[in-house]
């Protein structure tokens, strides 16, 4: 049994983007605030803080979920992946990120980190999704800029590229 009382500050360690890191947390601290304020990784954004907008989405043990609906203490010992871990290096974006850039799937970028994390989970489970399925997963995010069509195009093209198909006719539609 683990107990953290309300005034206690505890050390949390987790595997973040493949590296073991640790920081201090109180029992009521949200995972979003722990990532942003304690660990300094501000790629994960905070919009609504009640599970509606999706911009705080990260992967918890590989599974995409809202980090505003999880406590930092719950992440202790778990594997967390955030947008900062997607690109292999500063100038080597991954397939999904490249497709986002090509199809203008972002404007202000506020919602983008969450959407990338949702689809990095979804596309790892479903290599050949229908457009409807992509729209359904996208339904868990709110973007106020792009109008979603660019997002759908980018995600479909990234899926094709990740399957090893060349993105030849992408963008033609």
């Amino acid at each position: 049994m683990r107990e953290v009382t309300k005034d206690e500050v505890v050390r949390i360690s987790l595997e973040l983007n493949g590296k073991t890191v640790s920081g201090n947390a109180t029992s009521r601290m949200l995972l979003t605030d722990f990532l942003r304020n304690e660990l300094g990784l501000t790629g994960t954004h905070v919009g609504c803080e009640h599970g509606v907008c999706g911009c705080c989405t990260v992967r918890i043990d590989g599974v995409a979920a809202r980090s505003c609906l999880m406590l930092a203490v719950q992440a202790d010992g778990r594997r967390i992946d955030t947008v900062e871990g997607l690109a292999a290096s500063k100038d080597a974006l991954n397939a999904l990120q490249r497709a986002f850039r090509k199809h203008h799937a972002l404007q202000c970028g506020f919602c983008t980190a969450g959407i990338l994390m949702s689809f990095s989970d979804f596309l790892s489970r479903k290599q050949n999704p229908e457009e409807d399925e992509v729209r359904e997963v996208l339904g868990g995010h709110i973007c106020r800029c792009t109008g979603y069509d660019g997002l759908v195009k980018a995600i479909m093209e990234a899926a094709a590229e990740m399957r090893g198909e060349t993105p030849s006719n992408a963008g033609a539609a």
Partner: peptide, 17 residues
């Protein structure tokens, strides 16, 4: 908004819960 202060308990069994 953030949760009000609270204690966090993570039991290992249903009995402890």
């Amino acid at each position: 908004m953030k949760p009000a202060p609270l204690s966090y308990i993570r039991p290992d069994t249903a009995e402890e819960a």
